[in-house]
Each structure stands twice: as C-alpha cells, then as structure tokens.
Simulated assay, not measured.
Amino acid sequence: MAMKGVHFLVVFVFTLAFTFVSASDPSPLQDFCVALGDTKNDVLLLLHMIEVLFYAVFVNGELCKDPKLVVAEDFFFSGLNKPGNTSNPLGWMATIVNVMKIAGLNTLGVSMVRLDYAPNGGLIPPHIHPRASEILVVLEGTLYVGFVTSNPNNTLFTKVLNKGDVFVFPIGLIHFQLNVGNTPAIAIAAFDSQNFGIIPIANAIFGSDPPINPDVLTKAFQVDRNVVNYLQSKFQGNNI
C-alpha cells in the first residue's frame, strides 16, 4: 500500500473512531485501560485505529489496549532504587513514573517520581503541576520546601523536612524544594494524575519559544530591559 494511501486510511479510520467511540469520563469505566504505546509507525497506527473503531475508547488521551492482550509488564516499572544524576547547574534529578513509563496507569489517576538532590543547595526551582496535587515524603536528607497561595494574598508556607517527614503541595500552586543539608537528599512524590505535568516558572517566562516580547517582561517585573535580555539569553533552550 502506498504511503499516501496509508495516510488517507489513517485519517478516515481516526475520524470514524472519534465519531463513534470517543469518551472523556474522569473515572475508570473498567478494571484497567492499558495504553497502547508507540503508534508512530504508519501501518501500526492504521491497525491501532481499526482496533479503536471496534474495541477501544479514548480516555484521557490514551488509547486502550485490548484487555486480552494485557500482560503483567503493562503494570510494572523498575528503577526507583537507582539514584538520579544531580551533576547539573541546579543539582537535582527526577525519575518519573507516569503513564509514559507504565501503560497500565492509564485512567487510574496516579503517578509518582523519585527526586534526588545534590548536597548543599540542590534545588527544584519554583514550578507548578497543572494537573495534580503532590504529596512528598523525604527518604534521606533535609529539605526546605514551600508553596505560595494564589492572589490576592500570595501567602508563603514553608517547612524544613527531615527523613520520614511528609508535605503536600496543592494543585496549580507555585512550589519548590531545596536541599539545606550537606549530604544528598532523596524524596518520593506521588500525584493524583497519570501525567501531572510541570511548568518551571523561570523557564516558562524567560525561556519560552518563541520568546515573550521583552517589553511585556520589562513592565511586568519592573526591571531594566537589559535584565530581561540577560535572563532570556540565560534561559533560552535551558530546561530544568
């Protein structure tokens, strides 16, 4: 089959599938809905779309695998025992376990991450999770953590956490974690979303693509334009 013909069939079958079996229920409607996984190959995508038409539904953006094809590996991940590489300017690393890592998380509304912090200042800078609240437990080390409430108060809540301590960051609020100890720190965080997302504040503002007009940032932050130009040059292409 010519590639052009494959593309046409993909579009045709996708249209039919979306028309007849699309859904967006926030709660699972079955025991599980294991994500199909990689569908970049044109022929595989066509087969997946045909399967969707007859067997599957759209739920939270991921297609469901035929339950008869599900295996234990679809619910498994190995690696949270391995420390992340914190040799970067901010001194932190995340090992993420979300729906992209465990297909069986699809529609279950949970995910987690191992967080490693370098000694003496390893920092997860201010950021938000647009789709989830976060609960964090410290396994090793000492962390200074906090979050800021929304307007009009912008109240800062902070706490120093030690091994075994737990802290919660409400959904959508700016928060951060800083290693204030002289040894590496480790934490595990859990989220009430299969794909919680992250928006690092500084990177989003000064490193957007394309860049935000400097006039906007100069007035918003009440600083000299040269400061904005410097920060944009610093953050362009630099993701946390």
Rank of each mutant, 00 (worst) to 15 (best):
13 V>F: 03
13 V>M: 06
13 V>T: 05
14 F>Y: 05
14 F>S: 14
14 F>L: 12
14 F>V: 01
14 F>N: 07
15 T>V: 10
15 T>I: 09
15 T>F: 05
16 L>P: 00
16 L>G: 01
17 A>C: 12
17 A>N: 01
17 A>E: 00
18 F>N: 11
18 F>Q: 10
19 T>C: 12
19 T>F: 13
19 T>Q: 04
20 F>A: 05
21 V>A: 12
21 V>S: 13
22 S>Q: 13
22 S>A: 13
23 A>F: 03
23 A>T: 13
24 S>T: 09
24 S>R: 11
25 D>G: 03
25 D>H: 12
26 P>R: 10
26 P>C: 07
26 P>T: 04
27 S>N: 14
27 S>M: 09
27 S>Y: 12
28 P>F: 04
28 P>V: 05
28 P>D: 08
28 P>H: 09
29 L>M: 10
29 L>H: 07
29 L>Y: 03
29 L>A: 08
31 D>I: 04
31 D>P: 06
32 F>K: 07
32 F>C: 12
32 F>N: 12
32 F>Y: 14
32 F>R: 11
33 C>M: 08
33 C>E: 06
34 V>G: 12
34 V>C: 10
36 L>I: 13
36 L>E: 10
37 G>N: 11
37 G>H: 09
37 G>D: 08
38 D>F: 06
38 D>C: 05
38 D>I: 05
38 D>H: 09
39 T>W: 02
39 T>E: 12
39 T>Y: 02
39 T>L: 13
40 K>S: 15
40 K>Y: 02
40 K>D: 13
41 N>T: 04
41 N>I: 07
42 D>T: 03
42 D>N: 08
42 D>Y: 06
42 D>Q: 08
43 V>R: 07
43 V>E: 07
44 L>G: 13
44 L>R: 14
45 L>E: 04
45 L>C: 09
46 L>P: 03
46 L>S: 01
46 L>N: 04
47 L>Q: 14
47 L>M: 12
48 H>W: 06
49 M>H: 07
49 M>K: 09
50 I>E: 00
50 I>Y: 05
50 I>K: 00
51 E>R: 13
51 E>S: 15
